[in-house]
Amino acid sequence: MLLSHFVKIYDNMNCHLYGKLIYNKLIGTALLIVLLLLNMKHAKTNIFEELPDSLNGWTSENVILLNDKVSLYDYIDGGAELYISYGFKKAVSRKYIKQGQPEVIVEIFDMNTSENAFGVFSNTRYEEDSSFGQGSQYVEGALLFWKGKYYISVMTTEETDESKGLIYKLGRIISERITETGNRPGIIDLLPSEGLDKSSILYFYHYIWVNSFYFIADEDFLLIGDKTDAVLAKYGSQGNRSYVLIIQYDDNETAGKAYNNFINEYFPEGEFRAISQLEDNKWMSVKLIDNTFYGVFNGITEEYVSALLSDIELTYKKINIDYK
């Protein structure tokens, strides 16, 4: 549009030399404007500054910036550790108030990577839809979602029609203004799809979360530490649940140590079998493939655990074509 406009101006100048000089200047300016516009379109949004000061009669005066662990501790005390365990970088909080309505609090966490943002989300949601961002859950006055490297919470202490309306509105604004999307952690691709409860996938890299679905042990004998990628997921339906744990180590040696720790602690009398039945009559198995530890727990039958293990191996082969 801009270029054609300048071309028309040039034509009207009848190719005069002076006109040519002007033409060159105009073309240069036009190109500069186009480049600036393109740059603006693709510039990363600073979502921390994008929250409105007022909306539908609700106002927000204070912005609280949480730019380190200490300020996060001050803000949510022990709750801060969850975010720190997923690589918290910084966050912003705004409180919206309106006469006669409960307050609505918005918190946007910059988790540094999309994998971390998904991780926090996966740790707290138990159902998932795609209404907001790259995955969300709404629970009676609380909207939680993730998009790109951000994890977002919009909540009220008391759900009313108005406070719920504001939560949805703010959720949409934030979701639209975060222009970047991001990937979920690659380790999730190792989960077989058959029977997987997708809303249960829990990604983590801090050993604290290994017992999230099923108590395995009270110490970090699987050597997860605070930087080893791991994922937990539920298979089957309520009343017939099995749990899959996958841990991907930096090297085969650590993976081997973790595997041996498991065998030694769970089967100290050497009674380990490829698929074992525990004293609660449930079946389980652990397997080591290269640098990756697999555990299948709480299986109703030996056959089910065996089938799940086969799926695990097939999935691994598809992703790691060198695996033999």
Binding site: T124, Q137, V139, E140, M155
Partner: peptide, 8 residues
């Protein structure tokens, strides 16, 4: 749920 870990 959420950073404040509370929901009625």
């Amino acid at each position: 749920v959420g950073p404040h870990h509370f929901n009625k």
